[in-house]
């Protein structure tokens, strides 16, 4: 069974989590062009790689961010949602046990 480290609940079986797609920044809808907006709405980075993704621990309803290698299905690090408020976190400092929820952005 694959294990994911939830920043709130610690290591849990991956079946307890729901995938919420890649972490993406929305362009400003008031200033961006139609093409930029449709690209944001529809286009995805379909190629494999290490990606920041939204995940939810279903039982506790807790959303967080995981950095996952989509070629090998290896979770490199997990972060509380606050970590992405101002930009994507760097994994270095937080690989292994996830930071405490109050620890804030990496």
């Amino acid at each position: 069974m694959k294990i994911m480290v939830c920043p709130l609940n610690g290591p849990r079986p991956v079946a307890e989590f729901a995938y919420g797609g890649e972490v993406r920044r929305s362009p400003d809808p008031n200033t961006c062009s139609d093409a930029e907006w449709s690209s944001y709405v529809f286009n995805r980075s379909g190629s494999p790689g290490a990606k920041y993704e939204w995940w939810c621990h279903i039982a506790s309803g807790f959303w967080f961010v995981a950095l996952r290698d989509t070629t090998r299905d290896v979770v490199i690090a997990t972060f509380p949602a606050e970590a992405v408020r101002r930009g994507l976190p760097t994994p270095g400092a937080t690989v292994g046990p996830a930071p405490a929820i109050s620890g804030g952005a990496a």
Partner: peptide, 17 residues
């Protein structure tokens, strides 16, 4: 494997795998 080939010609699509 489509997204990997599309990267070679810099085309963007909604395709996810």
């Amino acid at each position: 494997f489509t997204p990997r080939i599309l990267d070679m010609v810099d085309l963007h699509t909604p395709i996810y795998v």
